[in-house]
Write a protein that binds this DNA or RNA. Structure first.
Length: 442
RNA sequence: GACUCCAUCGUCUAACGGCUAGGACAUCAGGUUCUCAUCCUGGAAAUCGGGGUUCGAUUCCCCGUGGAGUCACCA
């Protein structure tokens, strides 16, 4: 087994890649990287009706932004018609295929059918073990509409043989078509590769993932603010685990490349769930550098808010508020829309808002605020941070009843029922603005 | 319907045939806390059913049940 490992990823450009496809690519990719192999991209565009150039762009783009590179390709099956034609001629000459009844398309041409030897095909699946299927169930299946118009089973097999694919790693939905392809490989005198059929990715209804299951293609995940590393981490865990009782949950792409093995892929379909993805995404977001985090935040803010955020204050909001709250970047736009950033940039409107804590009277509150103001005033501008402010106010507010101090403090700064604690708010607003907001209520 | 694949907490999963079936997400309770979020502690929660094999089955075999996939001149 010192044959070079070569795997392939063969999308048909009839739509964008969905996460099932991406996971297939990922597994092929990881397997290739782990074993010093190569991965090959080819477009299966023999269906002229449905294939479109623009989808090729989109697919290529998706792979690029995800950082999933390939070693050779892409190639296009539509450009290799003569090669398939030769294969067809060879099959016909060897009586492995024949012209059959007229085509349905009204062209008057005859379709080409494979002469099925009607035998049982047994193959070893790296994930499932031995699988045996009686190919006589398929009959003499069609392999081309005409000599110039080959279809799937033929083109796949010809290409896989020619590019010396060693391992075919694909979805479980291809199990039943494997024996047909083996029949063709045998007829063409090719070498039979290893097969590994991945468990399917299913939606919450347990059915094969499709458009009806919500966000399924990368641009949608990107729009929701998920990171590529989160998607990889999550997708890899859907059907694979490091084995050996290891309980690691977070894997970088590099770690996956190192630890991946086909033996640890399991057989049953996995349901896609956003909850776990979110938690993984939050983790990878937290590992982002300030600069990268900021870049992402800026992609999601409205233009107006963007101006506000492009400041030291914005940076503070990111590190003090966003990082502990947000598990995908799109939530930032939601926060903006809900007005959760407004009070950082303009004084809140406190009409009709109760500043006093619970049953506290105006007198008491006013007195507290006055004292609070004085204490804050004594802190130097350089030291005006959450930690220091908390330190100075903590014991004092404890004596008075913390709510009596912190509630009015926080409410005056934010005008909001829910917000980060007043210490953080004060740090973000800085000394001058904090005092200025308090001043109105003394 | 035929053929094929699959079956552990709600979800993703771990467990050379051998401790009270482990972890993560979600959930619930408590703690920290003026609120929200974070954080900490704890709880509930699973081997589809029936037969074998075995001293011993989550694990191996058979049957059943359930779910899924494929049955195109799509890929």
């Amino acid at each position: 087994m010192n044959k070079k490992i070569i795997v392939r990823f063969p999308p048909s450009p009839t739509g964008n890649l969905h996460i099932g496809n991406i996971r297939s690519f990922l597994f092929n990719y990881l397997f290739a990287k782990k074993n010093n192999g190569e991965i090959y991209l080819r477009f299966e565009d023999t269906d002229k009706e449905r294939s479109e150039k623009k989808y090729e762009e989109i697919i290529l783009n998706t792979l690029k932004t995800l950082g999933l590179d390939f070693d050779f390709g892409p190639t296009w099956q539509s450009q290799r018609i003569e090669i398939y034609q030769k294969a067809l001629e060879k099959l016909i000459e060897n009586k492995n295929a024949y012209f059959a009844e007229e085509s349905q398309d009204g062209s008057g041409e005859k379709v080409i059918r494979f002469k099925n030897p009607n035998k049982k095909i047994k193959f070893n699946d790296l994930i499932r073990g031995e699988i045996e299927i009686d190919t006589s169930d398929f009959g003499d299946f069609v392999i081309a509409r005409s000599l110039e118009n080959p279809i799937y089973h033929l083109t796949v097999v010809v290409d896989d043989i020619e590019s010396e694919i060693s391992h075919i790693i694909r979805g479980e939905d291809h199990i039943t078509s494997t024996p047909r392809q083996i029949l063709l490989i045998e007829a063409l005198g090719g070498e039979i590769p290893e097969y590994a059929h991945l468990p399917l990715l299913v939606g919450s209804d347990g059915k094969k993932l499709g458009k009806r299951h919500g966000a399924v293609s990368w641009p949608e995940f990107e729009k929701d603010g998920y990171l590529p590393e989160s998607l990889f981490n999550y997708l890899a865990l859907l059907g694979w685990n490091p084995g050996g009782g290891e309980e690691q949950e977070f894997f970088s792409k590099e770690e996956l490349m190192e630890k991946f093995s086909i033996e640890n892929i399991n057989k049953s379909p996995a349901k896609f769930s956003y909850e776990k993805l979110d938690s993984i995404n939050k983790y990878w977001m937290s590992r982002l550098s300030d600069e990268d985090y900021k870049k992402n935040v800026f992609n999601f803010l409205s233009e107006k808010m963007l101006e506000n955020f492009n400041s030291p204050k914005g940076q503070k909001i990111i590190s003090l508020v966003l990082k502990e709250r947000v598990s995908k970047f799109s939530e930032i736009l939601e926060m903006e829309k809900a007005g959760e950033f407004d009070y950082f940039f303009q004084k809140p409107n406190l009409e009709n808002i109760k500043i006093n804590f619970k049953d506290d009277g105006d007198e008491k509150t006013k007195k507290i605020l006055k004292e609070l103001y004085e204490k804050l005033e004594e802190i130097s501008e350089e030291n005006f941070n959450a930690k220091k402010i908390k330190e100075i106010l903590w014991d004092w507010s404890g004596e008075l009843g913390r709510g009596s101090v912190l509630h009015p403090f926080r409410t005056i700064l934010s005008g909001a029922e829910k917000s980060p604690d007043p210490f953080v708010l004060a740090e973000i607003l800085e000394k001058e603005e904090t005092l200025s907001r308090l001043k109105n209520y003394l």
